[in-house]
Write a protein that binds this DNA or RNA. Sequence first.
DNA 1: CCGCCACCTTACGA
DNA 2: ATCGTAAGGTGGC
Length: 411
Amino acid sequence: MAIGRVSEWRKLPLSLTELCIDTTLRCGQSFRWRKIEDEWHLALYGRILSLKQDPEYLHYKTTWPASTGGFPGSPEVKREGSAEESPSNDDTEQLLNHYFSLKHNAAELYELWSLNDLNFRKKAPKFTGIRIMSQDAWETLIGFICSSNNNISRISQMVHKLCKYYGPLIGHVGEEPFHDFPGPQALMGKGVESHLRELGFGYRAKYIAETARLVSEEKPRGWLESLTNPDNPGFDAEEDPARGRATYKEAHEQLLSLSGVGPKVADCVCLMGLGWGEAVPVDTHVWQIAQRDYKFGKVKTKTFSKAMYDSVGDHFRKIWGDQAGWAQSVLFTANLKSFSDRSIAKAEVDDVKVKVEDTVPETPVVLTTPKPRSSKKRQVAALETVKVEVEEVDTTSGTVRRSKRRKVQST
DNA sequence: CCGCCACCTTACGA
DNA sequence: ATCGTAAGGTGGC
């Protein structure tokens, strides 16, 4: 494969507080970025995107393949009609602006979340520069179908296998081949499920093949993209009339019709692939955070119910507002074992600086007006009958004391 | 609706 | 060593 056109390194003025790629690209949002000698690389939309960073600038470079006409027997580079013809006008800066949601000011948002949430104020300072990425919706969907009962390391391996065996080769970095993510057509073949099982995908093999078939054949053309937040459209989406008619709740509900997509995966796609900042994916980690730091009680049941799932999301949306999913991602990362070195180092400082009473969340300031929700009444009523043990954790002494029985939700 | 449990695979600690 | 458990859950009872 010959190299086509290589842009010069360019740069955007961006502090590490606004974006830290070493954290953002490794915190479990995207599973394909690879770091090679201090530079991060990704095959995306028919090109290889390269990033590196210093305290003042994000440096970026685009490498296009020599031939952009597709390869014999290879799946298409990107879904319908995305023009990757002669890249005469470099859209990389536009792509980065969208990909990292640079229209938002991270420092301002962190400040806002810290204002209303003392736990966030305590945890976030060691995890600045985390941003929610606006990734390709299809890639996000498949990536998080792979994520069930799984860890980031193996998810990454699986996604790389999808690209290696089903995605078009875009180019190389050193000796390393870089493949773009395969489209729905490429993953719906009859032999795909058994092949993916051989590759170690487990029960997710069926989910992927079935979801690919659904999106490719059962759903209308452009269905997935039509679920995009109209206020946060794709970087190359202008003349798409089908795009952006949906609400967050509608997008979430629609995604549930796919195979291997439950409420958590649907929220991941909403947040990181469709631009819905209020989507809060509640996984095992976030549930632990909600219980430990936000007074969601221990429950007897092994699995938490849909009502509890919605309750956690609603609570965080109430505290954090329109970009609740972003705030959640910061705390999620702070809670990740792979970043625990920072948490531990920080905890020692915290215990000196933060008083016990400061760890108790105050009455949250409402940042957004809650939308009326009539059909929810039954769920809320059911939830209020659930009485649970509520633990209050003294972060200074490490002891745990039980309080009187209390409701999970404080409507 | 709620609560179980099987589901693939891998890595890690007891 | 062998086993249990957890890993960014979902689908079917």
